[in-house]
Nucleic acid binder design. Structure first.
Lengths: 116, 116
DNA sequence: TTAATATATGAATAACTGTTCATATGTTAG
DNA sequence: CTAACATATGAACAGTTATTCATATATTAA
């Protein structure tokens, strides 16, 4: 009977989904990473850093806003492993943490283009 | 003189960053997409849908929470083009909208694994 | 048509988050 | 050491968002 078959099939999918669900901790860490890159100001910072490392003042120039706001956002990005930083004299140079970040940014843009 | 050279180089990077910055509208749409997948509950829904389309009740089983809360989240995911849906009788079956979503999920997991 | 099931939604509250302002820390030059 | 510069941070306010509750819509069965 068709209804039963599909019901069984769907229920099986639901079971698989529940069994393969990552742990709450993993889900929360992934969510935190996405949340970190989900605010326009922070996203602009990442787009700016695509072209190489920048000090805070140059990031402020590139994305607009106050030094304080950008600095707060940079801290959040760093805490979530999205950017890394190194000191050079008085300046602290920020850059994208790894190639995953670059890839995700490009995928997001591709996704956007598709929707147009 | 080293300081001047580096300063020029950095300033050049800042200029490039500003020139290649996507428009505010684009940045906001990308940010909205990431925001859509940045809450643990919604992320769980996406992980559940990796295994195929599911009706709302099965999604509720897979991710926990109330039917109402899940339904609200599904609406948000759909409004941002992260999932799509089709009706089949009484049920509405949800699935991931496109391969970009799948790819981003996998990248996020890879990023997470690297940090351990 | 009526009852039952599946899904969606409006309103309200509670929790969260971004920005601002003032100030602190750390580095270099004099 | 002191002044100047670059960056970071704590607290508070404003805006945003997730959840809950009650209810509405839509489909199917009888």
């Amino acid at each position: 009977m068709e209804t039963c078959d599909r019901e069984a099939e769907h229920h099986c999918a639901a079971l698989r989904a529940r069994e393969n669900m990552p742990s709450d901790g993993e889900v929360e860490r992934v969510a935190a990473s996405f949340k970190a890159i989900s605010e326009p100001c922070r996203l602009k910072i990442l787009f700016a850093l695509r072209h190489g490392e920048l000090c805070v003042l140059h990031i402020v120039e590139a994305v607009g806003g106050t030094q304080s706001a950008v600095s707060h956002q940079l801290r959040l990005l760093k805490a979530n492993g999205i950017v890394k930083s190194r000191r050079e004299g008085q300046n602290i140079l920020y850059s994208l943490a790894d190639e995953h970040v670059v890839a995700v940014l490009e995928l997001a843009c591709a996704h956007l283009k598709c929707k147009i």
